[in-house]
Amino acid sequence: MTAVLEARDVSVTLGAANARKAVLSNASLALRRGEITAIIGPNGAGKSTLLACLAGLRAPDSGAITLGEVSLTRVSARERGQRIGFLPQVAEVNWDIDVATLVSLGRLPHQGRWGQSAADLTAMADALEATDTAQFASRVVGTLSGGERARALLARVLAGQPEFLLADEPLANLDPRHQFDSLALMRRVTTSGAGVVLVLHDLAHAIRVADRVVMMDSGRIVADGEPATVLTPERIAAVYGVASHAVTLADGSPGLVLSGPC
């Protein structure tokens, strides 16, 4: 598929005028639908800032974000909401709403002024089913376990049927089994044609699940390509200061083992 969500020479600086710090320097990245892109890098590398720019949450100080060749600043907030779904790192859910209501909020950019259409209800039902959350649709979000909650929050984004799903560290606070389940779900999302962008800390997950890995360091994109070509021991040592070696897993897929600081 063609590239539709694109960052061109995007730079962001933070701080007071006399102490400006570049958190993102000339980052260029073209995201394609139908694949999982993992953005990785040490803390402070600019991953979340890049994701916020792609989601339209932050305007770059220079450079541009385009969606289907149109500058994101020229896309209406509502259309942006319909086409780009965003899963924040720390989810906030107010008012003790139940899961069905949470998922219905994902339809807000599509919904008319006078309530939900049949298409809204279908999309919500599909999202509940895809995430296997339909069985607790009437439970209050605050009473769910961490894993259930992560699925419900993902269902909220999926209900909007976005062309791109951007998730900032979606695996944080999940046990290993739920991490694998979440990633399997992300894979299913791409088969329906959406592009998935994940900020990840776990390099083993990145090399196993991503179609493409974007490695960042100090605000720059230092590598962008197939997981096995990006995640080389030399590069991991240079960027993270960690020794690693590539392995082949039992099913033939690539794996990665980190052995300690180097």
């Binding site: 916020a52 339209g56 949450l57 942006r80 989810a91 859910v93 807000l108 950019p109 919904q111 909220r156």
Partner: peptide, 17 residues
Amino acid sequence: RALDALTLGEAAARTLG
């Protein structure tokens, strides 16, 4: 609608339009 979106916090609400 905007108040509904705000249920998910300011950042998520903005990505909902």
